[in-house]
Amino acid sequence: MIDHAHDLASVQDATERLLTAVAGLDNAAVAEPSRLPGWSRGHVLAHLARNADALVNVLEGRPMYASAEARDGDIERDAPRPLDAHLADLRDSAAGFRATGEAPADWSRTVELRNGVTDSAARVPFRRWAEVELHHVDLGIGYELEDVPADFTERYIDFLAARFSGLADVPPTLLTDGTRAWHTGRDSDRPEVTVTGTPADLLGWLAGRRDGTSLTVKGDALPKLPPL
């Protein structure tokens, strides 16, 4: 069962870690490239702020973004701002998400995200938690997947393994860190590929943050996963 209150608290903790780390940058560092192709660190920070606003929209029954063009335009508009502006925006947008999440609501209801994707309202805080953790890593400022809380890593591997399950282009795949196992890919009684690695490396590959070269693959080549 999803504990949205726990996840809201985890979002707050992750946000504080992010804000502390970002506060140690300067304007020049914000303008430098992030680990995401074509995006500066300012783009990542702008996206994080606007994503918080967008998830407030989702929880309040409005479209997540006015349009894909509006989403991209807002990020491009906000990316070049100085560090202080980014920090203030991150704090304000995080506070808005937290206030909306703490308001009385029916957490069992279904909400709509981007591109027609639907989910339980109770999972929205976890989705925000994922945004904060992964994009903190994307900034390339010393926070790595190995630093992400272990309970988040396990849950996000669960989430992504389920997301890629049933896809015809992904062979039946067993994922394991040596103690736990997950199944993904198209339906089959027997996996065609077994992928073994640390939780951080498995998460990095599933989330498109690592190329999988550190993983051990048996049975066939490492499957190609669709983008998130």
Rank of each mutant, 00 (worst) to 15 (best):
P149V: 10
D187F: 12
D72S: 07
A49P: 04
E144H: 14
D7A: 10
H47F: 11
P227D: 03
P63N: 12
W182A: 03
R98N: 08
H47W: 02
G178A: 12
R71Y: 09
G24V: 10
A221C: 07
S120P: 05
D169G: 08
V44I: 04
N115E: 15
L202D: 00
G208A: 04
M1A: 08
V132C: 07
P199R: 12
D201A: 15
A79H: 09
D187G: 14
S188K: 07
V30I: 15
L36H: 01
A88R: 13
S93K: 06
L167M: 15
I2C: 00
A168C: 14
D147E: 10
D147L: 03
D147C: 10
V44F: 04
A23E: 14
L25M: 14
H183D: 12
K218H: 14
D72R: 13
I75W: 00
P172I: 08
A221S: 15
L83F: 11
N115W: 12
D106Y: 12
T194D: 06
T20F: 14
Y156F: 15
N57F: 05
S214H: 13
W205H: 01
D106F: 14
R127Y: 09
T196K: 14
P149W: 04
L215E: 03
A161P: 03
E192T: 00
A103Q: 11
V58H: 03
R71G: 07
P172Q: 05
R109L: 09
G208H: 06
G61V: 13
D189P: 13
S214C: 11
